[in-house]
């Protein structure tokens, strides 16, 4: 794949820059979400210093970082008529097969562009929250390093999960229900709704054998020091295993998808 082809990654950011209202909307939404989350968790901790093994500042930091991290989960491109579902239903997916960049790589490059754009939002949001005292710095230098590696692996797992659900469209010609279920499971089992430490043990056990926990809870737990740096190699190894398993699955699905490509309406 040529260097020039990587420039395809700029499609989503260019589209966002062309519409300042979208950028303003994202900024307002993010600020409101962070503010409300900080208020909620500070209020929940008003009577106690520690709950479920998490100190107040750890819990607030975890919750704020979870909100920020949603920005890199994958942008909703439906307003731009650029989701896999829309391309398949409208038939524009045809063009993915008449370009000298395979559909699999095109999808990857676009996702990398989207995630880098989302990451820029996270960096800015993190800097502001850090300056405002809404989040605390990483528990230690080791925790910061483990967090960085874990976050990267978490993004790869998230990418593979979203890709698998998107690829289902080639067979079912729709994936709305699957996407809704995926988003709900990810929010619930990864710690977006609440840190997993607040859930019962059986829930923690269940989430440990599914990939969702490794998309958010693991890196955030390392960041706030709830998971010790000594546990990092084991956690990173599990994340890596999920990356490999899901990559194998999506690779297989791409190969099959190319053989069943159909287009709605002739």
């Amino acid at each position: 794949m040529s260097v020039a082809q990587w420039r395809v990654a700029r499609v989503t950011p260019l589209g966002e820059f062309a519409q300042p209202a979208r950028i303003t909307g994202t900024a307002v939404r993010l600020a409101a979400q962070v503010f409300l989350v900080v208020c909620l968790w500070r209020s929940l901790y008003s009577q106690v210093e520690t709950s479920a093994g998490l100190a107040r500042e750890q819990a607030v930091t975890y919750a704020v970082l979870a909100v920020l991290a949603l920005q890199i989960r994958g942008l909703d491109r439906s307003a731009s008529r650029d989701t896999m579902l829309q391309h398949i239903q409208e038939g524009t997916v045809l063009y993915w097969f008449v370009r000298p960049i395979p559909p699999r790589r095109y999808y990857l490059v676009r996702a990398v562009g989207d995630q880098l754009y989302g990451f820029a939002w996270v960096i800015v949001g993190y800097a502001i929250c850090l300056a405002a005292g809404a989040v605390k710095p990483p528990a230690s230098g080791g925790a910061a390093a483990a967090f960085a590696v874990s976050l990267l692996l978490a993004q790869i797992i998230m990418y593979q999960l979203l890709l698998a659900v998107d690829l289902v469209c080639f067979w079912t010609l729709q994936n709305n229900a699957a996407l809704t279920i995926l988003r709900f499971l990810q929010n619930l089992l990864s710690g977006v709704i609440a840190p997993l430490w607040f859930f019962p043990d059986w829930f923690l056990t269940m989430s440990s054998v599914l990939p969702f926990r490794y998309t958010l809870d693991v890196p955030l737990s390392l960041y706030i020091g709830r998971s010790a740096v000594g546990e990092a190699p084991r956690l990173l190894a599990i994340q890596l295993l999920w990356c490999v398993l899901l990559a194998g699955l999506t690779r297989l699905m791409w190969r099959k998808a190319a053989g069943v490509v159909t287009v709605q309406g002739g």
Binding site: V11, L14, A18, G91, V98
Partner: peptide, 29 residues
């Protein structure tokens, strides 16, 4: 080959036409 499929566009909905063409320039090198 080049292809146009009726009313289905291969251009990116939110980008100006010239930006879309520039992206295809990069894809095709």
């Amino acid at each position: 080959i080049g292809a146009v499929f009726g009313q289905r566009t291969q251009l990116w909905w939110d980008l100006p036409a010239r930006d879309s063409l520039a992206i295809l320039r990069d894809i095709f090198g």
